Amino acid sequence: MNQQHPPQQPGWGGSPQQPFGQTPFMPPPPKKAGAGKVIGLGCLGLVGFFVLIALIGAVASGGSGSNNNKNTDDAKSTDGTKSVGDTKTGGSASEGDKKLGSKRKPGKKVVVFKVWGTAPAGALGPLNITYGSDSDNRDGDFKDGEFKATLPLDDDALYFNVTAQLQGSGDIHCSVTVGGKTKKAHAAGDYNICSAQLSAGLLGGWG
């Protein structure tokens, strides 16, 4: 007589028996890698996005560099314009210097001595001329009916004069000039003397 054993319950050390004719239970298939690919593509998209931003930044910086160069060129041209203006200003300044130079006082004044007229030579020789100051006397030559000489103005001199003595006959004029002042004299016949003299002011000097 066969003894029937009750069927084993699951969880008691054995695996459950599958009913006859049914396919044993299979584990679920692994998930597809499509989601990973999507995530990978998303990462690549982010990387590409950042690369695109970097490229745009590089282009923008390049454009600003060109603008900086342009600004630099403009600054150079502006400087060039200013330098031209400075040159013009320099030219006007030089013209101003010329104008100032024209208004400057002339060089040291001179004293002018003159004798003119007819003065034939006599037994004692030709016309005798002396000129100068109280501290400086000189002789002059009468040629072709005239004599002219100049001396630097000595501010310390008390006077300047010119004298011309005839030698028996003749008719002469003489003068001495300091700045805008002139003193004249005249002599005629015999051994007469023509004498012209200019003296310093009461306080001295020839201002």
Rank of each mutant, 00 (worst) to 15 (best):
L127C: 01
D73A: 15
L124G: 04
G170A: 08
A123H: 06
T87C: 02
A121C: 06
N71C: 04
S77E: 14
S199V: 04
G205I: 07
K109D: 11
S195Y: 07
P29L: 12
A188G: 00
V178F: 08
Q197K: 15
T150K: 13
V84K: 11
Q197S: 09
S169Y: 06
D73R: 14
A187C: 04
F160Q: 01
D79H: 00
G34N: 14
M1C: 03
F49I: 09
R138E: 07
T23C: 03
L100G: 07
D171R: 07
G117V: 03
D171H: 09
W12V: 02
S83P: 00
L153G: 04
S92Q: 08
R138A: 09
P152I: 05
A35Q: 15
A185L: 06
K148F: 02
F113Y: 13
G207A: 08
G189C: 00
S83N: 14
S175W: 01
N71F: 06
F20S: 12
G207K: 10
S77D: 12
G125W: 02
K143L: 04
N68G: 05
S61F: 11
S102P: 07
F25E: 09
S195L: 08
P27T: 13
G62T: 12
V176M: 08
V176K: 03
P106Y: 03
F160H: 06
A123T: 13
G101L: 12
L52D: 00
G80L: 15
G85L: 13
T130A: 07
D79I: 14
P6K: 05
P6H: 05
F20K: 09
V110Q: 13
G85F: 10
R104K: 11
C194I: 03
A58Y: 07
T118K: 11
P7H: 06
G36T: 11
A60D: 14
K103Y: 09
G107F: 05
L203M: 14
I193M: 08
K184V: 10
T78C: 00
A33N: 15
I53P: 00
L46P: 00
W12H: 07
A121M: 07
K105C: 05
P120I: 03
N67I: 12
G168T: 04
Q22H: 09
G107P: 14
D79R: 06
K70P: 02
S77T: 07
G91E: 14
L124S: 15
D190P: 03
K114F: 03
M26Q: 14
G125P: 05
G65E: 12
W116V: 02
L166P: 01
K184I: 10
C43E: 10
W12L: 06
G91D: 15
D134K: 03
N161M: 08
P30K: 11
A93R: 10
D74M: 15
N128I: 00
G140A: 00
F113R: 03
D134M: 04
T130G: 04
V178R: 08
M26D: 08
D97S: 13
